[in-house]
Design a protein around this nucleic acid. Structure first.
Lengths: 249, 249
DNA sequence: GCAAATTTTGTAAAATCGTGCAACTTCCCT
DNA sequence: AGGGAAGTTGCACGATTTTACAAAATTTGC
């Protein structure tokens, strides 16, 4: 791996995630932490990123793009994404919502699989165009500053012309009775439209979000086909969902 | 194996993979590493590739270049963007194409100005959502992996419903007779559509791109309203454009 | 204020680079 | 055809760069 490739990788990661850990990059790229440290220092001098204790952040880092859950439960999200990758097969048409779990999924798509992916999420799209074989179609619209996804009529209209094989739906709260819920009304509208545009809905969520609910409802629990969490499928927390007919992973 | 054949092989390999290792090529072509090193140096001088420690990367990916001319070019782009900012006024509707000059412009928009910006460029959009008052609308479509912008029918269709006050058109080659030209046919289609969706077209370009042309034509010189370069408006290079009726900055 | 994590500094090994040079090929001129 | 000039290639060797490891200094979180 050339040094320039590492630079490339790091700048891209920072751009997408706003934040990277030094140890994570070192492990991912199979080089020593010292090397990454030198890289970060160099990229900082170039002004491409801002180096901080323990890693780096975007040099144009703003509070608006900072979200608490972006740094939370990364291990779990990675586990979930690994499971979700198994549902992909050659040449299928995929729809992906936003959120860090989907971002992780986008990152873990194997290099040799060919897909068409639709997404309204800016970070997910950035990640996808780095993949050699994935054709990425961005669902345009008014961009939400904090969620970094396209919302509103344009996005929903685009979705209405589309039928994907599978939808990966990122974070949201899932409760047996309340169903799938969200805090933001516009996001609810978008996610509803996404569900209608896909043959099959896969919900990716960390177990914390299970048995909790938010203000607005996206759909009933039974409308979800598959549920992926970081837990074993045999975990008692998940039993009620299996009874409802959901496939678990 | 002739030298020109090696050149071809190397340039092609770089184009396809975005990177090559010196040792790999030497082994593959059955010549000494020194020879390949000489080849890489030569191709770098020609600007065909960018040589780095241990191999080479694509020169169009000059994100992390130390070469002075490109640092200069960045200075120029910054100068251009600074001038372009002056054309913005409160609550106007802006259309921005891709390219690093536009990205710089997005970065330099003052924090206290309120705008609506439409763009098909992923990096520009990422930059814009960091701005507190700019409402950003992403023009969706199939994403080009190298230009990182949305292309194709979807994007053009979206544009047809839009009328912006001003269009900032990034890099392209400008020649008095050939007009505004581009290398990529699909980009030409998009830029044409963008021009039709704006009352006024402002071309942002470094002086190097003036009096040169590419394969495909976007429009005639006279269809451009304003031309912004890093040069003084009195520069002789620009005189013919003023005579054509273009406003200079 | 302490323990853990991170950074800095120094060092040594490995990889890569630049240069000079000799052997070889190609081209050009007679 | 032959001879010489010019260019190309592979090798040797010292210089430079890059990398990993280790120990000391610093920062962070509790």
């Amino acid at each position: 791996m050339l040094r320039e490739e590492r630079y490339n990788y790091i700048v891209n990661e920072v751009k997408i995630r706003n934040r990277v850990l030094l140890t994570d990059i070192a492990r991912k790229l199979n080089v020593s932490e010292d090397t990454i440290r030198r890289d970060l220092n160099h990229l900082d001098e170039q002004g491409k990123i801002k180096k901080v204790h323990g890693g780096a952040i975007s040099s144009s880092f703003h509070l608006y793009s900072y979200r608490e859950d972006q740094i939370y439960a990364h291990e779990h999200k990675s586990t979930i994404a690994t499971k979700a990758v198994k549902l992909l097969h050659e040449n299928c048409v995929v729809l992906m919502s936003g959120g860090t779990t989907n971002l992780e999924l986008a990152r873990l798509i194997p290099d040799n699989i060919s897909l068409t992916v639709f997404t309204p999420s800016l970070p997910v799209a950035m990640q996808l165009i780095a993949h050699p074989l994935v054709e990425t179609i961005f669902i345009g619209g008014r961009l939400s500053k904090d969620a970094q996804i396209a919302l509103g009529g344009d996005a929903i209209r685009t979705l209405s012309h589309l039928k994907a094989d599978i939808l990966f739906m990122g974070t949201g709260n899932l409760d047996l009775e309340s169903g799938l819920t969200e805090f933001d009304w516009e996001v609810v509208q978008l996610k509803k439209a996404m569900m209608e545009s896909a043959k099959k809905t896969v919900v990716l969520t960390i177990s914390e979000k299970i048995n909790s609910s938010q203000r607005f409802k996206i759909c009933a629990t039974s409308e979800v086909h598959t549920l992926i969490t970081e837990l074993e499928t045999s975990h008692t927390l998940l039993a009620p969902f299996r009874e409802k007919g959901l496939e678990l992973m």
